[in-house]
Design a protein around this nucleic acid. Structure first.
Lengths: 246, 246
DNA sequence: GCACATTGTTCACATATGTGAACAAGATGT
DNA sequence: ACATCTTGTTCACATATGTGAACAATGTGC
């Protein structure tokens, strides 16, 4: 069950992150098509808890810096080492595609850092974006770091869906693709989950954390270049990763 | 009406900001005394929206960097100039008390930046904290920047409560205190809102924004020194504020 | 390797919650 | 200064939502 009002306050914050200016109750209500009264309750709750304020009289609401203070506190734990951001920045610049770091989360691979392509047609992904762990290059690069027992535990929960023509829809299909990936030296996907999307990924263990790097873009553009993109990822990781780290 | 589930996800985030480590469903449910099933729904909602993930298998949930990305986006609009943080940092260091920048929000003054005292007994305030605009030194320093008409509009909505012996409980009492503050050169409060709390504040207009600086602490410690603290605030603002700015 | 304890997940129902309609307060234009 | 339009606020009721109990899956100790 999705908790509507919990989701709504995230929507409100995302709205402010986009518009980047104060908004009145009426504007917010209209934007989402919510009743005034419901919007009123939400804004009152956020204000009372100190997360929203009215910068100027009748000038509408805006988030307080409290969000930033809170986000900083949670993010200073286990921050990604700086070289990982440099890594995806460089990969994105070299390839012109979107590059990301992903982490496992149950049955999903979650994007925890993203540098977007600048191309007009591009893979639009944001931090927090999720893809099924077995049906994406990034996810399979995570699965490669699991033991067979751990993977089996996941497989039991997955309901295999045919997202696209090439989606692996059985445990065996996934395991086969993993073996192929090991032989090949990288993971790849051609629309396995998202239509028209292709990408290359490799595992990126850091300390005891299981992460992966992925470069992805429209199939027509990146498709033929997947092997060379994969090679570039490998080379760049080798160069940027400190020798001391595992 | 307070929207419970909206407030709850803020509670969850604050919980993570405090503990700074992943927590399982059971831990969170126990901490708040929530039913497992309700907690499950909340965590599922946050995960689905990309705000929570499970860093390692069966290792519990933790917020994704998406919070940080979002908070950064909203906060890069109208950031406070750097010298304001230097200002309260210096004031806190010099006085040993808590120093803050506040902004108006309807009937409240909201703390938008805070440097806490290091003393064991101290004014504990966080970014987002709110005090009634008419019953606190910081708030009155904001009111001084309003026109009489604007203040009247606020007065109509205030329900005057006797928070402490010295709380101004009428429009006239507030206006008198404002006139005294102007004559005195600074705003002060001795337990007007919070028991045992005293403070000094002055207006701090920046561009078209109406802000204030306040230094506050336990009455027994800061009480006798309020005039000299106020003088220190004024001097320090004069020194740090760029001459070009209004 | 089995029994027990703990954690995670589903579902039907009682009840807490969102909302439409009516009202109040401000803003806008003449 | 008045009438009109827009925005903000309250409240009672219909209904969407939280939750207890029962179940499943996983971890732990012997």
């Amino acid at each position: 069950m999705i908790v509507r009002q919990a989701a709504n306050i995230l929507e409100i914050m995302e709205f402010f992150a986009q518009t980047k200016k104060p908004a009145t109750l009426a504007e917010i209500a209209d934007h989402f098509g919510w009743p005034r009264s419901s919007t009123f309750n939400l804004l009152a709750t956020l204000s009372e808890k100190g997360y929203l304020y009215e910068p100027r009289p009748r000038g509408g609401f805006y988030p307080t810096p409290r969000w930033l203070a809170m986000a900083r506190m949670v993010s200073e734990v286990e921050p990604l080492p700086p070289w990982t951001h440099a890594l995806i920045a460089e990969l994105s610049a070299e390839t012109g595609e979107t590059a990301s770091i992903t982490a496992p989360s149950g049955l999903w691979a979650v994007f925890i850092d993203v540098v977007e392509s600048q191309a007009p047609i591009r893979y639009f992904a944001t931090i927090g974006h999720r893809v099924p762990i077995h049906a994406a290059a990034s996810g399979r690069a995570l699965l490669l770091q699991y033991s067979r027992e751990e993977r089996d535990a996941l497989y039991r929960k997955i309901e295999f869906r045919q997202y696209g023509p090439s989606t692996p829809i059985s445990i065996e299909a996934v395991e086969t693709e993993l073996r192929n990936s090991t032989a090949r030296g990288y993971c790849q996907s051609f629309g396995d989950y998202s239509r028209d999307l292709a990408g290359a990924a490799i595992p990126l263990p850091i300390g005891d954390r299981r992460l992966s790097v992925v470069v992805a873009g429209p199939e027509f553009r990146i498709g033929p270049k997947v092997p060379e993109v994969a090679a570039l990822i490998t080379r760049t990781v080798d160069r940027l990763r400190p020798k001391s780290a595992a």
